[in-house]
Nucleic acid binder design. Sequence first.
DNA 1: GCCTGAAACTAACATGCATCAGTAGACGGT
DNA 2: ACCGTCTACTGATGCATGTTAGTTTCAGGC
Lengths: 266, 266
Amino acid sequence: MGAGYRAQAERNGWSDGGAMEFPNTGDFLAGRLRDKLSQDDLEFIESLVAETRQGETGDVLLSRGAVTEQSTILISGYIFRTIESDNRRFIVGVHVPGDFVDLHGFALKRLDHSIVAAGPITYGIAPHERLRDALEHRPRVARALWFATLLDAAIHRKWIQMLEQLDAPRRIAHIYCELHRRFELVGQANARSLRTPFTQIDLADMCGVSAIHANRAVGKLRELELAEIRRGDLYTSDWDALRAYAQFQADYLYGDGPLRFDQDWL
Amino acid sequence: MGAGYRAQAERNGWSDGGAMEFPNTGDFLAGRLRDKLSQDDLEFIESLVAETRQGETGDVLLSRGAVTEQSTILISGYIFRTIESDNRRFIVGVHVPGDFVDLHGFALKRLDHSIVAAGPITYGIAPHERLRDALEHRPRVARALWFATLLDAAIHRKWIQMLEQLDAPRRIAHIYCELHRRFELVGQANARSLRTPFTQIDLADMCGVSAIHANRAVGKLRELELAEIRRGDLYTSDWDALRAYAQFQADYLYGDGPLRFDQDWL
DNA sequence: GCCTGAAACTAACATGCATCAGTAGACGGT
DNA sequence: ACCGTCTACTGATGCATGTTAGTTTCAGGC
């Protein structure tokens, strides 16, 4: 095999050609809520970011149990929410550019989990002082922040169902389908691929299976000709077939049609 | 066996004597946030409840996909959050008296899951109109509502970890330990038992295992002399041993010590 | 007291996944 | 170019869990 992977990807029409590049500007702030907010509110949200930083794979932005006075906004790359227990790591969530990563640390004193870079990242720092100000004087921004945490909770619930219902290959497929849809919602999805820095160990820790079994699950997706996962990057010629296999229904991401945000109470 | 269960419970010092009764007044509203709010705010929250209703096992208070103009506050009994898929039911969350059950339906237009009575319940109805009013004129109440949804998200994350890390007997033990602690936090826990209306099918749907395997798991807890689960009611003489077995750490429930709520920005 | 249905339970066999023990390929450092 | 380390991959074996097909227990209705 080895060099045969890319050849097979070509044969199956999986390759996308180039790599997807994340913009490294602040164009993502507020992510999918962007078009629900006024220009004034958007500028205000951008002004929340006091500083922009870079991070590398494995960097711990916030440790479980830490008390923090700032929140993090992901600008490019992927971030894991992790819990260490029993000398093992469990990944309980993934974030994509545009996400506020630790708003819960703003209202809950301690953090119940850690925030870790899944690969090279760029992120912004928003001091809580400025968020407090927003909550008091910007009701629309305040509701946008609440909405973001509710959306996180909906994604958590889907992960619970996924872990209860699906076997390992389907869990991996579901995670990629979800991330692909989340990129679509901020206009950054590729037609035939999804680039990530995830190792098979990362996939295993997200799915609650051993790394060895994650490897077999990846192999099964390849064998079924549904997707080729190579160094974290997924290539497929048929997202619909992959979604059907994973029983992926995107409704829980609330991407289609109006949210309550359209109403005037916001 | 059969009639021997209760006898064994007596022998092991598991029995608690009487059943725990939930108060059927509104004393639970706002649950554990109660002592963080002023008398005035509490009276306001109680005034949110326009009506009190009763429900029976299996009653669907809200269906997935429904658009609702009211929120639900649980006063007595248990409520499940469920998702139907593949002709199977998956339980993604449980609520105890004092919990706001569907605040997410207030900000997210559709519901991504259903709200179902796990047994006989009493609940209050809070029209969204009144909640909207609260968000605008009662900043402390607004933050309390946000906090409640953040706490739900923290519990969701723990369930994800639980499903990734634990085998079926430990999952069941963990769920009971969590519920016991949540009752403690509102001052309603029994020393040696936890009464619930859960069937083994309910436990299976919470743990993501088959009903038959849930039965084996219950049997294992009995065999290890950690707990006796009988028609949903759990009896134990040693909560600490059960907690150790389930690797239950209560910190994610944020019950010990100050939350940010103590600070003046609330 | 008996009937009935739901829940709890049992046994036998099939499959998913963990674990152990290793090999092979990719990448960075020197 | 070499080496060490991390990631990807393979096979064998055992445990956890699913599935099928039942039996037993129990609470409630008649």
